[in-house]
Amino acid sequence: MFYIRLKVTFIYLLSRVSSSLRWDAMSEKSVSSMSEENVVKKVAELMETLDEIKKYNVLDRYLKKFTIIVIGSIAICILVNLSISFFGLLSAFNEFERFFLNFPIVLIPTVGVVVGILFVKRKINEVKTGEWKKELSKGFPSALKLLSEIDWDTSFDVVSSGRLGYAMYSLVKGAAYGFIFFFIIGFVLNLITYLVLHRIGALGYASFHFSFLAIIIYLKHDLSKRFNEIREIEKLQLELRRLSDELRSSEL
């Protein structure tokens, strides 16, 4: 559609050439080549941004698998913990020893988060980007070709779907971090109370409160960063829609 409009515009431009202009050939030539460079630069920026948005979309596409890996590891951790208590596997040890022997199970959700993040990173790295660079290196005509070949509707879908997944990814990761923080802070606090008071569990739910606070701070920072990016993507989507509409409707 865009291409047809471009052709209409081109034909229109052809009709305008009859009105001859007096111009200085040299200066006009340099202005023209600068404009061509600007078009190529802008199209490169557009293509790079669309490439980057594809990566956001990967987060959305693999969010379910990431969630399964992370939540699954947390579930396994809880099950292992319950099993140890239920079967009394550490009953031969005193309270203090049991607590510290129990601690390594935090490695299960930690490994889960690391595996989940590495899985998503690998998928992001698999996104093919920059395939347009070779074409664009040929200059303005190639920029024209790339612009004409952009599937705007698909691009808008990609932009829309990537946003929610990006925020949800942060929440899932935040929940897993919260769980891990809870264990680690609990371990540190109990170690301190044991060293100072020779008791464990003296601070009650302090580890829960501290881990909750830590995760609120983390999520505030991470989510605000992500929402800022999402806002930028929304603005870009509006701009792309405007560009698409202008190019489609422009009859000049």
């Binding site: 941004t49 990566k55 987060l59 422009s250």
Partner: peptide
């Protein structure tokens, strides 16, 4: 038309 576009600096973080 293309020159009006402002592109955000995006970087999908994991």
């Amino acid at each position: 038309h293309v020159g009006q576009l402002k592109f955000p600096r995006l970087r999908a973080s994991t």
